[in-house]
Amino acid sequence: MPARFAPALFGLILSGMMSLIVSGIATLRAAPLDGILSAWLGAWLISWAIAFPVVLVVAPLPRRLDGLLVAAPATQR
């Protein structure tokens, strides 16, 4: 895969992992234990479909804030 796709691939992986974890926690709290796996997967797919485009649109803001809050490493001579 060409390097130009790295930000989108990162967003895809990150949004998938985060939505899986968050939807799992929410489903565990809200659903009865019987049938929890199918409820979790359904919630995760919907969450991921929303999370991926949101990550792509919102990602530049945290990157800018990170650049403002973290000192750049000193260059070696």
Rank of each mutant, 00 (worst) to 15 (best):
M18H: 07
A30C: 02
G11L: 03
A51G: 01
T75Q: 15
S47R: 04
I50A: 09
A71G: 11
V22E: 05
L69W: 13
I13D: 11
I50S: 01
L61V: 14
S15I: 05
G35R: 04
V55P: 00
L14T: 15
R64I: 13
A26L: 14
M1S: 10
V22D: 02
L65M: 14
L20G: 07
A59C: 06
A49L: 12
G67A: 11
A26I: 14
F52M: 03
V70I: 15
I50G: 00
P2G: 09
I25G: 00
V58I: 14
S47G: 12
Q76Y: 14
M17D: 11
M18W: 09
G42L: 01
A6L: 12
L41Q: 04
A30G: 05
A51L: 00
T27A: 07
A3N: 07
G67H: 09
I50Q: 00
A6P: 00
P32K: 11
A49Y: 01
L41A: 02
P53C: 02
I25P: 01
L28W: 12
L69Y: 08
P60I: 05
A26W: 03
L37V: 12
L45H: 03
A30P: 01
I21L: 15
S47L: 02
L12R: 04
S38L: 08
W44H: 07
W40S: 04
L37I: 09
G67I: 05
A72E: 15
W44L: 00
D66G: 13
M1A: 08
R4T: 06
I25K: 06
L14D: 08
F10A: 13
A6Q: 09
L28Q: 09
L14C: 14
A72R: 15
I36P: 01
G24S: 07
L20I: 04
A8D: 10
I25L: 12
Q76W: 14
L41W: 06
P32W: 05
W48F: 13
A26V: 14
L9P: 02
T27Q: 05
I13R: 14
P62E: 11
G16Y: 02
P60Q: 06
I21A: 15
P73L: 11
P53F: 03
W48H: 04
R64Y: 13
I25S: 03
I46Y: 00
D34V: 05
S19V: 03
G16T: 04
D66Y: 15
G35P: 02
A43K: 07
R29S: 10
P32M: 07
F5P: 00
I13Y: 11
A26C: 06
P2L: 03
L33K: 09
L65Q: 08
I36S: 08
S15D: 09
L65W: 13
M17E: 10
W48P: 00
A39V: 03
I25M: 11
I25F: 10
V58S: 04
P32C: 05
I36E: 02
L68I: 09
W44Y: 07
I25D: 03
W40L: 06
P73N: 11
I36M: 10
A74M: 14
